[in-house]
Amino acid sequence: MFTEENLRRVEEIKKRYPKPMAALLPVLWVAQEQFGWISEDVMRYIADLLGVPFNHVLGVVTFYTMYNRKPVGKYHIQVCANVSCMLRGSDNLIEHLENRLGVKVGETTSDKLFTLSEVECLGSCGTAPMMQVNNDYYDNLTSEKIDNLLEEFKKQANH
């Protein structure tokens, strides 16, 4: 299932630890990079690859919030709703995003472009309110800034 390049990465990762189970989190990251989300088939595949029980892999995947257990949109918008961001108006931004995207928190737009999530503190409290889209942080947000970003993402996606 893994590409040859990713299989090589798995071997490299395993060398960092005295036991193969320890490679599980990094290998799940490799999987999420390749497949976009972690399906049950992928979990079984990784369980075999590392020689750990499937139920252990399932337990780990469901414990950590960042492993997607279903497909997400091309742009995964994750808005911090914790205290520091809340004090700077993150509630309004989430509402604004729900209206703009026409989905509720936890949902994906019908064109599969955007998934909207509410997340806990992302460690960017000094530039609140903020959100993470895929791997990148966007700080000091306003409704206008969000509108511009959404336009930008749509343009990028059309290219």
């Binding site: 989190l25 990251w29 960042m66």
Partner: peptide, 27 residues
Amino acid sequence: IYMHRGAGAYICGEESGLMESIEGKRG
């Protein structure tokens, strides 16, 4: 020195939860 990336769990900042997570388990 090796980097070990977490995957979204506050509890892994607790030192023994952190070690469990490095070992490839729930935190």
